[in-house]
Simulated assay, not measured.
Amino acid sequence: MTHSKNLAALALALAGLMAQPALAQPSAAKTTPAAPAGLYQALGEKPGITRLVDDFVNRLVTDPRIGSHFKSIKPAALKESLTDQFCQLSGGPCKYEGADMKSAHADMDINKGHFNALVEVLQSAMDAQGIPFTQQNRLLALLAPMHRDVITVR
């Protein structure tokens, strides 16, 4: 599948990831689908998720389109929070204890363009980590319901 087809599929699957400080949420847990069987293992368990998030955040903070949204964020704290969130969402043993998405993004002025840029950065990180497209979509499907709370500029 081509990169542009991947982006289109990601955009559809990810009609709502996040943009910063952390993704997960106690409130979104009610609407987030259960983790597909084996997703945590397919992502490489905690070490694989840690590598993915490390790559993702490193790309995010330097991306010219959205890096400015992260200038006041400590990358290490963001990485820890996202690792726990991705781990929990994928069916791993981690416990995300960060802010809910609505609170975390309330004052960030995030529009659809910012959101789409973030999706592209996440896709690049997943590609670089060798995560198969099917597994990417499985993770993105878990993140997608969060878009309603992340995009704050309609």
Rank of each mutant, 00 (worst) to 15 (best):
V53N: 05
K71G: 00
V61P: 00
G98I: 13
A76R: 04
L118C: 07
H105A: 12
F86S: 00
R154D: 13
P47I: 05
A35I: 14
R59Q: 10
V119Q: 15
K112S: 01
P75I: 11
I73K: 01
V121T: 05
A128V: 06
L143H: 04
S103I: 14
K71N: 14
T152N: 11
A29C: 03
D107E: 15
L89H: 02
G98L: 15
S81G: 03
G38C: 07
Q41F: 00
V121M: 14
K30A: 14
G67H: 06
S124L: 09
L10C: 11
I73C: 02
P47C: 04
Q85I: 09
A99P: 04
L78E: 14
F86L: 08
C87L: 14
A128K: 10
K112F: 02
S103T: 11
T134P: 05
D63I: 03
Q20L: 07
F115M: 13
H3L: 02
A34R: 01
H69I: 08
V121N: 14
A125Y: 11
K102N: 09
F86E: 13
F115K: 06
T32S: 07
A42M: 04
T83Q: 08
R59S: 00
A11E: 01
S27L: 02
T2Q: 04
I131P: 04
T62L: 14
K30M: 08
T50G: 02
S27K: 09
A128T: 10
Y96M: 10
A128C: 03
S4A: 12
A37E: 14
K5F: 04
E97Q: 14
G130L: 06
I73M: 09
N111T: 00
Q88V: 01
A42Q: 14
T83I: 15
L118Y: 10
P33L: 13
